[in-house]
């Protein structure tokens, strides 16, 4: 256990170290992009309320929506994995996975720990953007809930990583599986509530999406942080992720095993 922890902390450090190596890219990723996304969201919702000439939408005020979209843009960026999914695909497609699977560690943990390490740093840096905006505009946010929200987001990241791992494993059988990432992540963008709050959806769809683990990626943590949902509903996120994790890990295991059987050690 001690060795496992030591190894995974080393991977997390690697995730941080390699990303800090490219300072400009890190700065764009951690500060510029979230600031720009937040700016666009603010303009969009200001325009929406101005055009409809209303004080509330579906029972929520303009400030409430602004708080939601500002935090959603931040949380949505934390709770998604493009980079590591592509890196895992590359490793399989080019055969550089060889250096990982011939060492006493697993491909899954290697990338999970890097992802968590990197996201932790991004979380700490990027959170300055929504924090400054909500404090400046006085938008409704229960900051005391932030630690519990962070816990859910990082638990969700394990689930998202399992999804990425499963998608990347398709590269054992198919060349160029990036189109899967695009379709998957765009779907998650909608069903997680990043694009708009899930409570704007008709009841059937809202219920359906709330019972999926993806809602725990954006809607539940942001809804809880902005006083939109109850604690009970927020806590269902942990249960939904757990169920989703069991299913995805089971499928991943099967695809991984089959993939390794068909793997030819590309390029070595």
């Amino acid at each position: 256990m001690k060795h496992w922890l030591k190894r995974n902390l080393a991977f997390a450090r690697l995730g941080i170290q390699t990303n800090l190596e490219y300072r400009f890219n890190f700065f764009i990723d951690a500060i510029v992009q979230p600031a720009m996304t937040a700016g666009i969201e603010i303009f969009l919702w200001f325009a929406l309320f101005a055009a409809t000439n209303t004080e509330t939408l579906n029972g929520y005020s303009k400030e409430s929506y602004l708080a939601y979209v500002i935090w959603a843009a931040f949380v949505g960026r934390i709770a998604i994995s493009w980079m590591y999914e592509h890196m895992m695909m590359d490793e399989i497609e080019t055969g550089s996975i060889n250096a990982i699977i011939l060492r006493p560690m697993t491909f899954f943990e290697y990338y999970l720990s890097q992802l968590l390490g990197y996201k932790l740093v991004i979380f700490l840096f990027s959170s300055l953007v929504p924090l400054s905006i909500v404090l400046y505009f006085g938008l409704p946010t229960a900051l005391n809930r932030l630690p519990l929200v962070a816990l859910l987001i990082f638990y969700y990241l394990i689930f998202i990583h399992a999804m990425s791992f499963m998608t990347a494993c398709l590269a054992f059988f198919l060349n160029r599986v990036r189109s899967f990432t695009l379709v998957k992540n765009f779907t998650i963008y909608i069903v997680s509530g990043e694009l708009f709050p899930l409570d704007l959806l008709p009841t059937f769809w809202k219920k359906l999406f709330l019972n999926m683990p993806f809602a725990a990626g954006v809607y539940l943590p942001v809804g809880y942080l902005t006083n939109r949902i109850s604690t009970e509903l927020f806590l269902t996120g942990f249960i939904n992720i757990s169920i989703g994790l069991v299913v995805v890990l089971f499928l991943s295991y099967i695809i991984w095993r089959k993939g390794l059987r068909s793997y030819s050690g590309t390029g070595a």
């Binding site: 690697l14 170290q17 390699t18 190596e21 550089s96 250096a99 011939l102 390029g267």
Partner: peptide, 17 residues
């Protein structure tokens, strides 16, 4: 832990560090 593989055409160490 008892073996080591060095593939001359592939990096086994980390490129960015």
């Amino acid at each position: 832990r008892k073996i080591s593989v060095l593939l001359g055409q592939k990096n086994q160490l980390w490129w960015d560090i």
